[in-house]
């Protein structure tokens, strides 16, 4: 069972990343839910998204105590780091967040996702690089399964999108940090 909280600025693809996890979970036969923060904050302010992947029907769709936190900016890190459950995991875009977790009861992972994206001509796809990294570290899904899920919804005439998504995913999956 996974309660996942993805948080960052609007425009970083937080909601999209959450949706990809949920889609894969659904294809994997799990119960899933996706609940975004909505309203003015979506337009440039902070943005977060509750994602749940479970083996049984989902109660509260709101993730207040995440098993997994994805922090794409410092305010999100500050706000949610303490909420992660004991034994949980934090994933931080270290290009944007200059802090390290001081907790010793959780696992923290750091990946310069935004820098990696920029270096690889994948500007705007730090979210997918991050997805690759968390899939690998959490083992939520196999790389192949997630890749298939990520690209399955892309129509044939937008095949180039599948390509860049796969590239970003592979970078995240291959990152050793």
């Amino acid at each position: 069972m996974s309660n996942i909280l993805l948080a960052g600025f609007g425009g970083q693809g937080i909601l999209f990343a959450g949706k990809q996890i949920v889609l894969a979970g659904m294809r994997d036969g799990k119960y899933v839910s996706w609940l975004p923060s909505y309203g003015p904050e979506m337009r440039g302010g902070t943005c977060n998204c509750s994602v749940i992947v479970e083996d049984e029907p989902i109660g509260s769709p709101l993730v207040t105590k995440p098993d997994i936190l994805l922090a794409f900016n410092t305010p999100s890190f500050d706000k949610f780091e303490s909420k992660v459950v004991k034994g949980g995991m934090i994933f931080v875009d270290s290009s944007l967040v200059n802090k390290k977790s001081e907790r010793d009861d959780i696992q923290a992972f750091y990946i310069p996702a935004t820098e990696l994206a920029n270096e690889n001509d994948l500007t705007g796809m730090a979210n997918v690089i991050m997805l690759g990294y968390i899939i690998k570290k959490t083992g939520l899904f196999s790389e192949e399964f997630f890749k298939e899920s990520l690209t399955s919804g892309i129509p044939a005439h937008k095949a180039h999108l599948a390509e860049v998504n796969n590239k970003a995913l592979a970078i995240g999956f291959g990152y050793e940090g």
Binding site: W34, Y38, P61
Partner: peptide, 10 residues
């Protein structure tokens, strides 16, 4: 309510 309207589920 707003949460049900905004959330996604299968």
């Amino acid at each position: 309510d707003g949460a049900l309207g905004q959330m996604m589920e299968p």
